[in-house]
Design a protein around this nucleic acid. Structure first.
Lengths: 239, 239
DNA sequence: CTCCATTAGACTTATATAAGACTTCGTGGT
DNA sequence: ACCACGAAGTCTTATATAAGTCTAATGGAG
């Protein structure tokens, strides 16, 4: 069954890999109930404890959610879940900010140097470029540029309007589950264009969030640069 | 042995709590080898697997480090470890920045409102206020203010000079292990004083890091505000 | 005799399995 | 409408075995 019979990794690691593959390939879809520990154990010819340990690894990677008495479910990127999991902006009172999207533009072009670098693209590959403004209580506060590999998201550029939570779209329409992000934060002064869009004086300090989001196979899926005019809000990083 | 005989939590959770207490109280000191899984199991009258699960919980909380064949050790906040664990600034090439400390001032005073709030202090309690400049390749780039509960760090204010890595001092001299931090990031314009210290034009954009660090019992131990003039550097937040 | 590579053994954490307890939820009787 | 109960799931605990690490004894080469 395993490709390499001399593979020395522990049993539960091999089982884990097979389970990940089932989620990646879409055999088990987001939100779906997966077989019980005993069923998985029987299928792979291991004990329930070993199957449990493999599933437990998925649970710590937040690929599945377990519920005692109910079963184990593949994570689903509902808008609410995406907000909770991947959005880290809070207002002065500590409340999670729920932004709206506005005025999105979407184009396709060959990737330039930085885009090739960020998304690990071969020269000549195309990217989708999305620009959008996000608002909070009606006033614009984030100016955002998003780049995606065109190859992974056919026809996305023709979607109009784009939904507010892209990660939800990635998963439900394209079957791509984001698993991990790396956010690089810095401060920058607003240039003339951004200042105009956000209705600011030029040179105003902005928080710049440079995010790369990775999929199940650790491939970079999205590169997103957000320029944020936080009015008393902040980005929260735990540990 | 347990204070409440009807305590319904699982066995391993109770054992875990006892082990945490041993680290908190200093019975097991940082860097020290703790007893083996079998010894702990025998002492608490449980199986090795249960003791192992309790220790495993500590390992995922990064309170201990396990090494197969060697044993399990309480984490130690060496300067290198602190840098790796709690310092999140990287330069444009992705290399970890190792800052130096410079020109620290240290005073003691009754806590003001924000300090009481951040450190959960009773009115009238005193705080230690530390101000310092951090340099990178000799040029100042972070202007930092640190507040500590005076009660926890007797005589710290008399230390001169303060060491570069405070977290190391907290652990080795005061036996206080930091376990978790919450960093709130925002962008701000340099005021006149900060601009002068960092040798900048007034109004230059700075990254503001507002950090609260928590100890083993989840008590806030440190409140630190850093104003950073990142020259191509960034703060990295994973996940 | 000294040095060094080897090896047996003790001790450690890691893995695998089995059995019973606990939780949830639907179902059917009252 | 309510409650008891059973089916089906995860969770906890215990036990046995494997695998990694260090130490000290051993024995041969120089």
């Amino acid at each position: 069954m395993s490709p390499d019979p001399t593979d020395a990794r522990p049993l539960y690691a091999k089982v884990r890999e097979q389970l990940v593959e089932r989620i990646r390939s879409g055999v088990w879809k987001p939100g779906q109930l997966i077989p019980s520990e005993f069923e998985i154990a029987a299928e792979f010819g291991v004990s329930q404890g070993t199957a449990r340990k493999a599933i437990g690894a998925l649970a710590t990677e937040r690929l599945v959610m377990r519920q005692q008495g109910r079963g184990t479910f593949v994570v689903e990127h509902t808008p609410a879940h995406v907000l909770f999991r991947f959005f880290n902006m809070f207002d002065a009172a500590g409340e999670l900010i729920t932004p709206d999207s506005w005025q999105a533009t979407c184009t396709v072009a060959p990737a330039d140097g930085p885009e090739q670098m960020a998304l690990h693209l071969a020269p000549g590959a195309e990217v989708i470029r999305i620009g959008r403004i996000r608002t909070r209580d009606g006033t614009p506060f984030i100016c955002e540029t998003i780049r995606l590999p065109q190859e992974l998201f056919p026809d996305l550029a023709r979607l109009d309007p784009l939904p507010n939570t892209l990660y939800d779209l990635f998963q439900k329409t394209y079957g791509i589950l984001l698993v991990r992000t790396e956010d690089r934060l810095s401060a920058t002064a607003a240039d003339a264009e951004t200042a105009g869009v956000l209705n600011l004086a030029g040179g105003a300090p902005l928080l710049r969030i440079d995010r790369t989001a990775f999929g199940l196979d650790n491939r970079p899926i999205e590169w997103r640069v957000s320029l944020c005019h936080l009015q008393g809000a902040h980005y929260l990083a735990r540990t």
